[in-house]
Design a protein around this nucleic acid. Structure first.
Length: 553
RNA sequence: GGCCCGUUGGUCAAGUGGUUAAGACACGGCCCUUUCACGGCUGUAACAGGAGUUCGACUCUCCUACGGGUCACCA
């Protein structure tokens, strides 16, 4: 195909308002001046106001690739479909990714776009696409198509009957040979039209491409004259992708494997236009178990598909990233075990190492990572993170938590810092329950005392202990020694081994006596170390609670 | 239905022709222990099925089954 006079007339007819040429844009968006090996990546979400877990998954790959190579990671908004656009969606994208520690070097922001390769919203780039489309028409590589929805449906039906492949190609391409005069007549009648690509593909040809994640893939060459510009002059995804990633000088396109089937379009367009192709990374989907089989994580059915879910639950953002890294690069876990404190930047992420099959989302694993991450934090850090979470998602608890910060911090410091840190919570939303008995407002008095103990013994402990043993100044050892003294005085077993060897020899053991104290003070059978709890509650509260328990017995 | 991608224990996975087929999570047992949590030790458990290539196949080829994706003027 070449720039015949007819083609030129057609281009002029279709795009009378376009004055720039592709070369102009080549000059406006020159190749980036980056060190060798630097990757330019992007995420290009639709502004639907919803951020899927998969968005973060892809974004993390992009971000790692760009930032560990000294490249650029940018945000482009794919708003070519006006129907799906939601107000404020860009802000949602930015804040949710920020919450997980990902930030962009350039692209769309809540305000003005930032960067020299913009605009970064596709609707604002209409002229660029049209310039390229015009050039393609001039070169005979594109043409207008006036088919209506009904026309296309009719073609589809005929193809179905004839057993032919669906699509707009070859003999089925009704307007492939439309003349300038015909086109002009239809335009004058006010008929809407799209601009289609004239595919150079041949039936039966096969193409090969090496995808960075999937490896070698082979498929039939595209023969479809796909739509470049919709009737409103805005490009389809396919055309926008090719034009944008060329002019924005993207080096690596990371996207979900749902794009594999239209991949031949893209490759063909790059070749036909004469542009260098980026490298591609087609990622497998996150799956979910549903009634015995695996399926894609669904935003309608699965709460964990939403990015906001993790924020609401109160997962530390770093743990979600850690989890994703373990899914993305299987050698990450091993590396992490060897370098528990190292910054993520020190891990060498490789697109080639990514799993090719879809991974089932494993919430147990996420939880484990989260627990292990939280248990390394100090009481102070836990307090800060919990406070931030509660402020947003649990105002009632937030009020309690911040009423006396020193008190709350002391509670959250129990059992931390040692070699065997407690792992009481996996998410910040576990904290309110964990702390509940420290506040009178949320202290509950079901008192699950040991069932094997007679009431009078329980009462005796509740009265004897504060009267004759309790001293708020005791250290841990003295404290426990006194519990043992009381145990002995009541004829219960102090030596657990002896008790276990012959439980019938005693009415009970030191475990029972301890349990009574714990239940009275905390209202539950499971709690952190009772000594620590008493220390934090303070003498007055401890005495009051022992007293209250005795009264309610 | 056409086309494409995939299939190692319950889950995530290492593994690239010769391995006792790692490890992590989950689950079970034992130990530690004043509860809980932690920790230590330990156990159950896998190459979807069938042909072929080969001295030898989890690894290569083909077929089947199953799962996923896609067939728009949506992305």
């Amino acid at each position: 195909m070449e720039r015949t006079e007819t083609n030129r007339l057609m281009a002029q007819l279709l795009f009378p308002h376009i004055t720039k040429t592709p070369e102009d844009y080549e000059a406006i968006y020159p190749p980036r001046d980056l060190p060798k090996g630097a990757m330019v990546t992007r995420i290009a979400p639709s502004p639907t106001g919803f951020m899927h877990f998969g968005n973060l998954y892809g974004a993390l790959i992009d971000e790692r690739l760009a930032h560990q190579s000294g490249g650029v990671f940018y945000l482009r908004i794919e708003n070519t479909d006006a129907k799906r656009e939601v107000e404020g969606a860009v802000d949602v994208i930015l804040t949710s990714l920020n919450a997980f520690g990902l930030s962009f070097d350039e692209g769309a922001t809540a305000g003005e776009d930032k960067g020299a390769y913009g605009p970064y919203r596709q609707r604002d780039r209409a002229e660029i696409y049209q310039t390229i489309a015009k050039d393609l028409v001039e070169r005979g590589l594109a043409y207008p198509c006036f088919c209506t929805e009904e026309d296309l449906q009719a073609i589809h039906d005929k193809q179905e009957k004839a057993g032919a492949n669906y699509g707009y190609y070859g003999e089925w391409a009704a307007h492939a040979n439309i003349t300038v005069e015909e086109a002009k007549a239809l335009i004058d009648q006010g008929k809407p039209y799209v601009v289609r690509f004239r595919s150079p593909g041949k039936d039966g040809n096969r193409i090969k491409y090496k995808d960075l994640a999937k490896g070698e893939i082979e498929m039939p060459e595209n023969c479809n004259d796909i739509v470049l510009l919709k009737s409103d002059g805005i490009p389809t995804y396919h055309f926008a992708h090719v034009v944008d990633d060329h002019f924005m000088r993207t080096t690596h396109v990371v996207r979900g494997e749902e794009w594999l089937s239209t991949f031949p379009y893209h490759l063909q367009m790059f070749d036909a236009i004469g542009w260098e192709k980026p490298a591609y990374v087609h990622t497998a989907h996150m799956l979910k178990f549903d009634e015995g089989s695996k399926r894609k994580l669904s935003k309608r059915k699965d709460p964990e598909a939403r990015l906001t879910y993790y924020l609401q639950q109160g997962y530390p953002s770093a743990c979600v990233i850690e989890y994703l890294m373990t899914v993305l690069n299987s050698n990450f876990e091993e590396w992490r075990r060897k370098n528990p404190e190292a910054d993520l930047d020190e891990f060498k992420f490789k697109a080639e190492k990514m799993g090719i099959a879809g991974a089932v989302f494993d919430i147990d694993k996420l939880n484990d990572i989260s627990k292990n991450l939280i248990c390394k934090m100090s009481g102070e850090e836990v307090y800060v993170a919990t406070e931030a979470w509660a402020k947003e998602y649990n105002p009632e608890f937030h009020a309690l938590l911040t009423r006396d910060p020193a008190y709350s911090k002391a509670i959250l410091s129990i059992g931390r810092g040692g070699k065997k840190p407690r792992k009481d919570f996996t998410v910040w939303s576990d904290v309110p329950d964990y702390m509940a008995f420290f506040f009178d407002e949320t202290f509950t008095t079901d008192y699950p005392f040991p069932e094997t103990m007679p009431k009078e013994d329980i009462l005796k402990v509740l009265q004897e202990y504060p009267a004759n043993y309790y001293d708020e100044n005791d250290d841990q050892q003295t404290w426990f020694n006194k519990v043992k003294e009381l145990t002995e005085a009541m004829g219960y077993a102090v030596d657990m081994k002896a008790y276990k060897a012959d439980p019938t020899a005693f009415p009970g053991s030191v475990a029972d006596i301890s349990a009574v104290l714990r239940v009275a003070v905390t209202g539950r059978t499971a709690s952190p170390d009772t000594f620590a709890v008493m220390n934090i509650l303070g003498k007055d509260k401890v005495l009051a609670r022992l007293n209250k328990a005795a009264e309610e017995l």
